[in-house]
Amino acid sequence: MPDRRKWGVWSGLACTTVIIGVLAWVLNFTGMEYEGMHPVLLTLVVNPFGVVFGIIAMIRKERKALLWTVLHLFLSVSIFPMWFIGTLLFGP
């Protein structure tokens, strides 16, 4: 049975912030810095907002809301293991 729930504004915002978070990670792995700011730090700002958008979308029973919330939680937390591994490999 296909999912007939609608794409709401909150699901759209959550999807957009997932894309921004993934782009920040891609820019991090390409080694780009913008005036001393690492793009991956954008994930600490954008993804918590995405979690809130995803929760609101789940409350409103919009399409793919749980997926966006889980992806935001993963992107929000994934920065800390990467810092730990980077410190182990490359030093402080």
Rank of each mutant, 00 (worst) to 15 (best):
A14D: 02
A14Q: 03
A14Y: 03
A14M: 01
A14W: 02
A14P: 03
C15M: 15
T16I: 13
T17Y: 05
T17C: 05
T17K: 01
V18G: 05
I20W: 07
I20T: 08
G21F: 01
A24R: 07
W25C: 09
W25T: 09
L27V: 06
L27I: 07
L27D: 06
L27G: 06
N28E: 14
F29P: 06
T30R: 10
T30A: 08
G31V: 03
M32R: 13
M32Y: 14
Y34I: 15
Y34Q: 13
M37L: 15
M37C: 14
H38D: 14
H38W: 11
H38V: 10
V40L: 10
L41I: 14
L41D: 12
L41Q: 15
L42D: 12
T43M: 13
L44V: 13
L44K: 12
V45Q: 06
N47D: 04
P48I: 04
F49L: 15
G50Y: 00
G50S: 01
V52W: 08
F53H: 01
G54N: 00
I55M: 12
I55K: 07
A57W: 06
R63W: 07
R63G: 05
R63A: 05
K64S: 09
A65S: 06
L66P: 08
W68P: 01
W68N: 03
L71E: 02
H72F: 00
L73M: 10
L73V: 12
F74W: 09
F74H: 07
L75A: 00
V77E: 10
S78D: 09
